[in-house]
Simulated scan of single mutants.
Amino acid sequence: MAIRHYESFDLLNQLQREVNRLFEGNSPQHTQTEAELATSDWVPAVDIKEEADRFVIYADVPGVESKDIEVTLDNGTLTLKGHRQSSKIPEQRGYKRVERVSGSFLRRFALPNTVDAAKVSARSQNGVLELVIPKSQQAQSRKITVEG
């Protein structure tokens, strides 16, 4: 019996790529994005939280070592890129189904102009990548007292 790799979000990811193509232009930057997305093996799930003074992104990257994660910020686009090593499972070991995906991943986020790009930080712990993206001082809201 052959091992069947189950990828529950494969169709959803394909639909997302197609919808993204509808809204993207035909510039060379978008062509590169499409090529990179097409070669990605999986997409990490993320939670994005906005606080008064920062944004926080939590990305699930179980089994990915911090040395295998690349985070870049260029022209307002935050890119998460990396690789999870495969665990070459031979058919002789009794596996009937393999659902854990391995290989490369890529995820991009367009950031607002209000972020302080110089102070972005990232750390990985227990399979969760945490990105802290501070807002610039000018962008933070402040309470103004009304005098009467």
Rank of each mutant, 00 (worst) to 15 (best):
R123K: 07
P44D: 09
V98I: 06
V64Y: 04
T79V: 12
L111C: 01
I89A: 11
L78Y: 09
S121M: 02
E130N: 12
V61D: 14
T72V: 04
R107I: 00
P112L: 01
A2E: 07
G25H: 09
T33E: 07
E99W: 15
I69T: 06
V19F: 00
Q140R: 03
L131G: 02
F55R: 03
S27F: 07
V101S: 11
R108M: 09
F105T: 06
I3K: 02
V43R: 09
K88H: 10
D41G: 05
S102Q: 04
V43A: 15
K119G: 00
G127F: 10
P90H: 02
V146I: 08
R93Y: 10
L131F: 03
A117R: 03
I89L: 14
S66G: 12
N26M: 07
G94D: 01
T79K: 13
L11R: 09
A52H: 04
L12P: 14
E36Y: 12
L11V: 05
Q32P: 01
H30I: 08
H5G: 10
P44H: 08
A122M: 14
S141I: 09
L73Q: 10
R21D: 00
S86N: 12
K81H: 15
R97S: 11
T39V: 02
E91Q: 10
A2C: 11
S124W: 14
P112R: 03
S8K: 12
P44G: 11
S104W: 03
K119M: 00
I144R: 05
Q14N: 01
A139R: 00
Q137D: 07
A59R: 13
F23N: 08
I89D: 04
V120N: 00
V132E: 02
T31W: 15
G148R: 12
T33D: 07
Q16E: 10
V132C: 03
V132M: 04
D53G: 01
H83W: 14
A35F: 06
K135P: 00
V128R: 15
S86M: 08
D53N: 06
Q85K: 13
Q16I: 04
V120Y: 00
S104R: 03
D47N: 15
P44F: 09
G82C: 07
T114D: 03
V120P: 00
V46I: 15
V19P: 01
Q137E: 01
N26C: 12
L37W: 08
G103S: 02
S87V: 14
V128E: 15
A117M: 04
T145F: 11
L106H: 09
F9D: 12
D41W: 07
V19Q: 00
D41N: 08
